[in-house]
Design a protein around this nucleic acid. Structure first.
Lengths: 218, 218
DNA sequence: GTCTATACTACGATAGAC
DNA sequence: GTCTATCGTAGTATAGAC
C-alpha cells in the first residue's frame, strides 16, 4: 500500500517537519524549505497561504499520527495499569519512529509567542483540538486508575506532566540525552530500555501496590 | 546588599533572558532587545560582540544561578535519599524564581542548530562546561544511591532524564501545563505541590524500600 | 557609552508570465 | 503548478560623530 508518488504538498510538509523540528518556527525561512524541496520559493505560497498555515498544518499531521495510534489503545477495556503500559509503549514507538516528532511537540508548547499577531489561522485551532483530545484520553485513564484504587492517590495533572516529561522530553533531548546515555536516543536498544525504565518507575511509583514486574528488579 | 543601580550590561542581559525565553534565539532581534532596554540598537554591539555572544553569556548567567544553589546541597554528606529530596527542592525553587529559567534551559537543549556556523564563541564553551558540572554532580548522587542499595538498580542516565523532564519540562510547559493544572505553574501552592508529588513518586519509585513519607499517602 | 547613518542580506508575501 | 521579478520590512553588524 501507499508510496504513490507523493504530491508536492506532501513533500513540502515532510521538509517543513524536519526543518521546524531542528530550528523552530522563526529559525526556518520559506526560502530554505523551498530549496530543500527543490521548488521555487513562490511555489510554496501556491500550496500554503502563509508560513503560519504551513506550520500548523504540519503540526496537525504529526499530532494525527500520534492520535491514530494512541486512541485505540487507550479506548480498550483493559485494566488501568495494563493500559498505561500499553499506552506508553505506543507513545514511545510513535516518538521513536520519526526523529523530529518529539522535538516538534516540545517546541510547539512554547512557540505560541512566535507567530505574527494577525488573524489566527484555522489550522491552529485544529491542531490544538487534536492535542486536547489526546490529553483528555490520558487524563481519563489516570482518573480511572485513581478512582479504582489501582494507582496511588496522585494528582492527575501532575502525573500527566511527569509522563510527558518522561516521554516527549526524553526523545527531544538530542545531544544532551545522547551524551548522558552514551548511545543514540532512537536505537532499538535505547528505545526498549526507556520503556523498561519507565514501566518500572511507574509500577513502583504509581501503582498502589508494587505489582508483578517484568525483569530487572530483585 | 545588591541593588546597586544595574549597569547597561546587566539590563541588557535581563532583557535578553526574558525575550530569548519567550521566542528563542532566532525569534528575537537585536533591535527588539535594544528598544526594550531603552538603548539604540548599535549600543548593544558595544557591550556584546555578536548576538550569539549575548545569548551564551546570558545562558551561562542562568546556569550559574542554578549551580550556585545546587552545588552545596549535592556536596553535603547526607544520605542519597535525603540529598535527592533537598536537591529537587533546591532545583525547583531555582526554576520557580524566574519564570524564564526553565524555558531557557529547555530551549537551549535543542537550539544548537540555530547559530550561524561561524567560529564558535568562547562563551558557548563556558556555558556547556557549567552544565556538565551540574549534571556530573547529579550523576554522582544517583550512582552513590544505587551503589549503596538505597535506590533500586535503575539506569542512572535514564533516571537523570526523567528527573530533568519532571522538573525543567514541568516549569517550562507554559499554557499547556497551566491548562492541565488549572492554576499558574509558579504560584506558591503549585510549586509546593510539584515538590510533594515528585518526592512521593521518587520515594515509591526510586527508593529500594517505599520509605517513611510525608503525608498524602495511606 | 550612546547616537545617527548605512551596508548588505534575508525575510514573508505578491504579481504576473508561462 | 512553477517560474522570475519585485515590494517593503527587518535582520546582523559596522563606521564614525559626539
Amino acid at each position: 500500500m501507499a508510496a504513490d508518488t507523493p504530491s508536492s504538498r506532501d513533500k513540502i510538509l515532510d521538509v517543513a517537519e524536519a526543518l521546524f523540528a531542528r530550528r523552530g518556527f522563526s529559525g526556518v525561512g520559506m526560502r530554505e524549505v523551498a530549496d530543500t524541496v527543490g521548488l521555487g520559493k513562490s511555489s510554496l505560497f501556491h500550496h500554503f497561504r502563509t508560513k503560519t498555515q504551513l506550520y500548523f498544518e504540519m503540526l496537525d499531521r504529526v499530532l494525527g499520527r500520534i492520535e491514530e495510534r494512541l486512541t485505540p489503545v487507550l479506548a480498550s477495556p483493559a485494566q488501568p495499569l495494563d493500559k498505561i503500559d500499553a499506552g506508553i509503549d505506543t507513545l514511545i514507538d510513535a516518538l521513536a519512529e520519526h526523529p523530529s516528532t518529539a522535538r516538534l511537540l516540545l517546541r510547539s508548547l512554547f512557540e505560541d509567542d512566535d507567530f505574527p499577531e494577525q488573524a489566527q489561522e484555522p489550522e491552529q485551532a485544529a491542531a490544538e483540538a487534536r492535542l486536547g483530545r489526546i490529553l483528555d484520553s490520558i487524563r481519563r485513564l489516570l482518573d480511572d486508575g485513581v478512582a479504582q484504587g489501582v494507582f496511588r492517590p496522585v494528582s492527575v495533572p501532575h502525573t500527566m506532566q511527569t509522563l510527558i516529561g518522561a516521554t516527549v522530553y526524553h526523545f527531544a533531548s538530542g545531544e544532551l540525552g545522547e551524551g548522558l546515555l552514551g548511545e543514540p536516543l532512537l536505537s532499538a536498544d535505547s528505545v526498549r530500555r526507556r520503556k523498561e525504565e519507565l514501566r518500572n518507575l511507574l509500577h513502583h511509583g504509581l501503582a498502589a501496590q508494587p505489582a508483578r514486574d517484568g525483569r530487572n528488579d530483585p
